[in-house]
Design a protein around this nucleic acid. Structure first.
Lengths: 218, 218
DNA sequence: TAGATTGTTAATCGATTAACAATC
DNA sequence: TAGATTGTTAATCGATTAACAATC
């Protein structure tokens, strides 16, 4: 099993390579990919080897081959069916953000308890009441879900989803979810991210001031 | 300097502890915090020690003391001024999401090149044209920025911001940013997160099937 | 006291980094 | 060939985990 970080980077490399290809670049070296992805060349090579991609010691990597390999490694040939739970401000923004971004990751159904949303089509995605989760999830064979409900409802939603066989959750609710080991959860707690940024921004600003003071003393 | 992961977890502990306090819990043990945060008790103790929080070997940790210490460690007493760049679907959703969530992290200004947004107040935040970035950033003493512009514009925006002294960026644009070492960047690439979830969901589903097959054989 | 906890130290694990040989 | 690259191996680094003594 490839590590979590490597999978994320492979996905990034793929995107960068497809931009290269659009610019008609045929071959590339690890350090070129590394510069774009902001990682080290050695890391790129290691990641690519994990994905069974090999290069040529004179011409580096063939962009077309690499893209093919990465797609084969990362994508489900049948595509993955995604549901989104919660169609508030955040849910609607996520629908608009994800729609069309990756054809293989299709958000096919949205769910919300608000009756006024029942039956509406938002960014091309139909909205169902929570009661119909089981029926719709089975109909579409949903394997991935995005949780965009308030914190208080998130665990209940996660339990329902995993009970229906969903094995991957992208959780935007600001609570850590309790799930079985065979379910992959990615927590995207945006408040924590913003707090981290603010904290390090302050530390860096302080470090800059104190290093300037030190320089001044010398 | 405390590690990135620890800072994130401290922020999480604080939130969980404040919920405890709302339920009138006075003292707590590391394993209680650990169960809520989905980490190990040893990790909780290590994190708390990093933040110079100490406990009592019989009564564990005092919830009130802990909250006070964590706030002192994590928060800027004067509050941090945050700007958001890009007021599209995502930007507006982020404004609504962050508004009021952390009083110490106030989004005081939004910026967008779309003239129709100039002067509008969205979720209590005034919208300015990009031309006014420098003047407004200096006026409010902005130290943190959220980047919610399309990929093609992100690097330019980041350069402008860091040029104005912003030392923390929360980047939602799907490109890695090039910044100086004294700027902290948190990349929140939601497409990569969703791809990771889909990938591991598939691996886990496959693993479940093969383990069932193995059990069947025995 | 006895017992469960905290804080500290040593051991383990994994990922990253650096150094090298192989290749075209 | 010469040179820059790839792929491989060994060394380093850091974080996590486990084991222990100290505490109330």
């Amino acid at each position: 099993m490839i590590s979590e970080k490597t999978v994320g980077r492979l996905s990034l490399y793929r995107r960068l390579l497809s931009e290269m290809q659009a610019g008609e670049v045929r071959t590339t070296y690890s350090h070129e990919i590394a510069a774009l992805a902001r990682v080290t060349p050695a890391q790129v090579r290691r990641d690519l080897m994990e994905a069974h991609c090999s290069g040529n010691s004179t011409r580096g990597y063939d962009v077309g081959d690499l893209l093919g390999n990465l797609c084969e490694c990362l994508d489900n040939p049948r595509g993955d069916m995604v549901a989104i739970i919660g169609v508030g401000n955040l849910g609607r923004a996520l629908l608009s953000y994800f729609t069309g971004r990756r054809p293989n990751l299709k958000i096919v159904a949205a769910f919300d308890d608000d009756p006024s949303k029942n039956g509406r089509v938002i960014h091309g995605c139909r909205c169902y009441p929570m009661d119909e989760l089981e029926a719709v999830a089975r109909e579409y064979d949903i394997t991935v879900a995005i949780i965009a409900v308030p914190a208080a409802a998130a665990q209940l939603v996660a339990d329902k989803l995993t009970g229906l066989g969903v094995r991957g959750l992208l959780n935007f609710a600001p609570v850590p979810l309790h799930v079985h080991a065979d379910v992959f959860v990615e927590n995207l707690d945006m408040t924590i991210s913003l707090e981290k940024v603010a904290w390090f921004a302050r530390q860096n600003a302080c470090a800059a001031v104190s290093s300037m003071e030190e320089e001044g003393k010398v």
